[in-house]
Design a binder for these strands. Structure first.
Length: 210
DNA sequence: ACATTAATTGTGT
DNA sequence: ACACAATTAATGT
């Protein structure tokens, strides 16, 4: 457990910081589907992701929700990092896409570390940069691509996260992530199946030829 | 093994 | 987008 943490983060942080993280951080497991942060939540701790995937969602005023991007092991959420300083409310929602292992860090320490440790500052800027880029990508594909292309990138992401060709998901869940309707997704998937790019099963999809 | 039901998926308008 | 049909999985008898 803590071994996993070391393995994942030792390359990122200088030894002194690693020691602090281990002594002050709280190791925690979470189940897939758990909401880590909802819209308007205040940040109480900063989670370093040891294993698993978190999905970051954004909703408009009408409550239409879309998937922005995923967080992977070795990362943390940029929004939490920003919010913990300024006592700002979260503008995004974070949900466990898979089962997770986390190291929870107390917010009080974050500011101290950013003055004390260069490796923490580097980690922060990396986090901001990567997630800003991911958000740009999300905007690009929403603005310039048709739904069928969005669906394809979505499926490719899912395949990567699952690390296998079978992805367990319903058409409705896909529709929610892409802010579309179930019927539309079903029809697009059917088309992909007819092109032999995917194989539709009950409750899951085969992505072998994707 | 069979019937019932709920959830998921397919299709026509 | 909506309504309804068909299929599949889960559960109880």
């Amino acid at each position: 457990m803590v071994e996993n943490f070391k393995k994942r983060f030792r390359p990122l942080f200088q030894p002194a910081l690693m020691e602090e993280l281990e002594s002050v951080g709280v190791y925690k497991k979470m189940d897939a589907g758990t909401t880590l942060m909802a819209y308007g939540d205040y940040v109480r701790s900063v989670p370093l992701l040891i294993s698993g995937t978190i999905k970051i969602l954004r909703a408009d005023d009408a409550g239409n929700e879309i998937l922005l991007y995923f967080l992977n092991p070795g990362e943390t959420c940029a929004m939490t990092l920003v919010c913990c300083n300024g006592h700002k409310k979260s503008e995004i929602k974070a949900v466990a896409e898979t089962d997770l292992e986390l190291m929870l860090l107390p917010v009080q320490k974050i500011e101290e570390w950013s003055t004390k440790y260069k490796s923490w500052r580097n980690f922060s800027s990396e986090t901001y940069y990567n997630q800003l880029m991911n958000a740009f990508k999300a905007v690009d594909i929403m603005a310039f691509s048709k739904l069928d292309e969005r669906l394809l990138t979505y499926l490719k992401n899912k395949k990567e996260i699952a690390a296998q060709n079978q992805v367990k998901i319903t058409h409705q869940e896909i529709a929610n992530d892409l802010n579309s309707s179930r019927v539309v997704i079903s029809r697009l998937l059917k088309k992909l199946e007819q092109e032999d790019r995917i194989e539709l099963k009950h409750n899951y999809i085969n992505l072998t030829n994707l």
